[in-house]
C-alpha cells in the first residue's frame, strides 16, 4: 500500500534504466558539457588541443575563482553582488601598495581590507538579517565609491614589471600549468572537500536548505551566513591577485559587471539560488562552459560578443531543464 509498510526495498545490484535517467538528471549539466566539447571539437581542430584548453582555463580563472566563493554564499541561501566592486577595490589596492610598501605587505593589507568588506556584508546579512540582494547591491555602489576615493579616480600600475615576484600569480607556470589555473582548481578542490567532508560544510548546506530547521537543530545560523561572506571576500582577493599580477596595473572599475558573469557561471553549473544545494564541481563546469562558449565561438570566427547571446540561451535552458525535471512537466500550468 504505502512505501513504509513494504519495508526497505532490496538494493539493486545492477544499474537499471531508471538509474541512467537519474544520472542524466543529476549530471545533466556535465553531460551537456561533454556533448558541447565534442560538438565544438568537430568544428575546429584547434579547439580540442591541450594548448587551447589550458588557455580557456587561464581565461576563466578570475571569474572562476570568484565563483567558488559566491557558490558558498549561494549554498548558504544568499547572494553576493558586491564581488565585482570588491575585485576592483582589491586589485587597485594591491597594485597601488605594491610599489609603495612591497608586494608581501601589500598583499597582507589587501587581504585584511577585503575580508573587512566581506565582514560588513556578513554582519548586515547574517546578523541583521537584511535582504542579501539589496545589501550587496548597496555595497556594490559603496565599494565602488571607496575605490574611486582611494585612487582619486586615477588608474594605478606597477612600474618595475619584470623584477617583481608578484608576477607569479598571474603570469607564471608551474609544471606546465598556469598559476591562475592552479589557484582556481586548487581552491575548487579544497572548497569541495570542506563543503562535503567537514562539519562547517554541512552547516552551510543546512542553513541554506532550511534556516529554520538549522536553527532548531542548534546551528548558529548568523555565524554561518557571516562566514560565507568572508569566504567570498577571500576568493575575490585571490582573483584580484591573479588580475593585478597579470595586468600589472588596474583601472579603478576593472571589476564592473563581474558579479553578474560570476553569478551566471554559478547558475549555469546548476547551483540553485534558493540555497541548500550546489557544489564546486558544478560551478567549475558552469564557468568552463562560459569559457568554452567564448573560446569556441571565437575560433569559429564569430565576434567576441556573440558568446553573450549564446550564454543567454544556455543559462535559461539549463535552469529551465532543472526546474522542469523537478516539476515533472516542461511548462507551468499557471493561467
Amino acid at each position: 500500500m504505502t512505501s513504509d509498510t513494504t519495508g526497505a526495498p532490496p538494493r539493486a545490484m545492477l544499474p537499471t534504466w531508471s538509474d541512467v535517467g537519474h544520472l542524466a538528471q543529476r549530471q545533466g549539466i556535465l553531460i551537456a558539457f561533454i556533448l558541447f566539447i565534442i560538438a565544438f571539437s568537430f568544428t575546429s581542430e584547434r579547439f580540442a588541443s591541450w594548448d587551447n584548453a589550458s588557455t580557456v582555463f587561464r581565461q576563466v580563472s578570475i571569474i572562476g575563482t570568484m565563483a567558488l566563493g559566491v557558490t558558498v554564499v549561494v549554498i548558504g541561501g544568499n547572494l553576493d553582488l558586491s564581488v565585482g566592486s570588491m575585485l576592483s577595490f582589491a586589485t587597485v589596492l594591491v597594485v597601488d601598495l605594491h610599489d609603495k610598501i612591497g608586494p608581501a605587505p601589500a598583499m597582507a593589507i589587501t587581504l585584511v581590507a577585503t575580508l573587512a568588506i566581506g565582514a560588513v556584508n556578513g554582519i548586515l546579512v547574517g546578523f541583521l538579517r537584511l535582504n542579501s540582494l539589496i545589501v550587496t547591491l548597496g555595497m556594490l555602489s559603496a565599494i565602488q565609491g571607496v575605490t574611486l576615493i582611494y585612487s582619486g579616480g586615477q588608474n594605478v600600475d606597477i612600474t618595475d614589471q619584470e623584477a617583481t615576484w608578484f608576477a607569479f600569480f598571474g603570469r607564471d607556470f608551474l609544471l606546465g600549468v598556469a598559476v591562475p589555473t592552479w589557484i582556481f582548481l586548487g581552491l575548487a578542490v579544497v572548497f569541495q572537500i570542506v563543503l562535503t567532508r567537514t562539519a562547517y560544510g554541512r552547516r552551510v548546506f543546512a542553513v541554506g536548505g532550511n534556516p529554520m530547521a538549522a536553527t532548531f537543530s542548534g546551528i548558529r545560523r548568523s555565524y554561518v551566513v557571516f562566514s560565507t561572506y568572508l569566504v567570498s571576500a577571500f576568493t575575490t582577493f585571490c582573483a584580484a591577485l591573479i588580475l593585478g599580477s597579470r595586468v600589472m596595473g588596474s583601472q579603478n572599475n576593472v571589476g564592473q559587471g563581474y558579479e553578474l558573469m560570476v553569478l551566471a557561471g554559478v547558475i549555469l553549473g546548476g547551483t540553485s539560488l534558493l540555497g541548500g544545494s550546489g557544489s564546486m564541481v558544478k560551478t567549475v563546469i558552469g564557468v568552463l562552459i562560459l569559457g568554452f562558449i567564448q573560446n569556441g565561438l571565437l575560433l569559429m570566427g564569430y565576434q567576441y560578443y556573440a558568446q553573450w547571446l549564446v550564454t543567454w540561451v544556455v543559462i535559461i535552458l539549463a535552469v529551465w531543464l532543472d526546474v522542469a525535471s523537478k516539476r515533472g512537466r516542461l511548462f507551468t500550468t499557471t493561467t
Partner: peptide, 16 residues
Amino acid sequence: EQGLVLGMSCRDNMSM
C-alpha cells in the same frame, strides 16, 4: 519547516 532539511539525506539530518 522546523524539523528537517528536506533536501538532505536521512543520515545527514539525523546527525545535524
